[in-house]
Write a protein that binds this DNA or RNA. Structure first.
Lengths: 242, 242
DNA sequence: CGTCTGCTTGAGCAAGATCAACTAGCGTGG
DNA sequence: CCACGCTAGTTGATCTTGCTCAAGCAGACG
């Protein structure tokens, strides 16, 4: 299935990932050093104890970026979705761990090989720089959420963000102007993880979910499945992020 | 004073800024496009309404990076000190404004010229990438502070950070092992700005300052002058950032 | 020397944390 | 296939931190 000949041709993130933002030659150079691999939920894919640095592009699944302090306090400082790049070049030590929040398909490159390409292929470096800048923008947006938003706004923002990044782009507006109900999705995070994202307690998450359900904005089925019934209202409650 | 011949030779941040991380030729290319300018406190130097994009290296003074939402909520998402780079390449719109927190000396390059150099001088692009990665690390550290630290820890962390970035590197340990008292510094931020940094209210800042003073950890004279009497204790209260 | 603005201090309040049951998914083994 | 049990999630009661509102104070500047 995942043999080397199927590496890129059928890659679902081919049009959005780092490798699509570079020229023909660089794409080939990249293809030569990648390995498509499966990673089970919970595995650390970058940062922390890792000795062999690797970088990766997410093909399927969600990665959480976690900072942990000696006293046990934990903060999720970012989520990465399919087509996102994971890894911290030019730094051996990095107190942020990238952990598989769900089972993952990733495109993994060895650190040394990737850094080599960075030196020889300026277009790859440029694409990386642009991606890191986006991560920086996202981090700063998230800082506003952490610092200034209420519990209600935080939960609404996160659900809206997850929904948008997990829905394969609505390709214009096909339907009439009925308020757009989204497909049911599997939440990539537990309540505890959501709490770690938003700097709240899991009890607070639970209460906010209850509130959103009672307003008919989202529905849940089981622990992990949720449906956004009214994205407009959800965005309204998330206090206009951009 | 600031004529073109004094541009770089006597630059106080020559050894730390972007321009020092590049080769001889790139340093010359950069020198050709820079202007050393003075900027008064309060001026926006990047982001927001700016039509002519410029980038800059801070030579003296402090810049705050501010996000503002339509409802008036404000969050400072970063501080930039001498030798830091300010500006957001490859994006025309950017809802973060870089504002002079104090009067500034900056080394300013026009956007177009700098982007041109990025295309022709890979070492400049590399230096920029490394700098942006550091900003990203800093942003993520700050997310932990915003999300997880108490008011006391937040204030202690900020004071420690400001003190370290405004003290010109202790060059090994010259003194005996007396607890190191730092020189008196001028605080680059008002109480309100500190509150916007830490996601607290100015009253809370005031109370935390009072507490730190009563413990003999810092002293203040007037509104803006402060002295760290015991950096070790200050760091202790800031809950070990790294 | 007065005034204006930024800072401090106090009193009461509220959002979210904490503590404590309790319940529902979901996997397991009988 | 169902009962069991474990863990994740929910719900309620109470507490705490930092916010809000209000008054008073002091440093900087004319």
């Amino acid at each position: 299935m995942l043999d080397k000949y199927s590496k890129c041709h059928d890659c679902p993130v081919r049009t959005m990932a780092l490798c699509s933002a570079v020229g023909e030659k660089s794409a080939c150079d990249l293809e030569r050093i990648i390995h498509r691999i499966r990673v089970p939920e919970g595995r650390v894919i970058s940062g922390g104890y890792q000795r062999n640095v690797t970088y990766s592009t997410i093909v399927a699944g969600v990665v959480k970026l976690v900072t942990t302090r000696p006293d046990g306090r934990e903060q999720i400082v970012g989520l990465q979705f399919p087509s996102d790049f994971v890894g911290r070049p030019f730094s051996d030590e990095n107190n942020i761990q990238a952990v598989a929040a769900t089972d993952l398909d990733i495109c993994s490159f060895s650190g040394a090989a990737f850094e080599g390409l960075l030196n020889t292929n300026p277009d790859i470096e440029r694409a990386l720089l642009k991606r890191i800048l986006k991560d920086l923008d996202a981090a700063r947006d998230w800082m506003f959420l952490l610092g200034r938003k209420t519990a209600e706004e935080k939960v609404a923002s996160l659900l809206a963000m997850i929904t948008e990044r997990m829905t394969p782009a609505p390709s214009a507006k096909p339907v009439k102007d009925t308020p757009p109900s989204r497909p049911t999705l599997r939440l990539p995070l537990s309540r505890t993880e959501i709490a770690d994202c938003l700097s709240l307690r899991l009890e607070t998450i639970s209460r906010q979910f209850a509130q959103l359900k009672s307003r008919g904005i989202v529905e849940t089925k089981g622990r992990r499945n949720f449906t956004v019934r009214d994205m407009t209202a959800l965005k309204h409650y998330s206090a206009a992020s951009a």
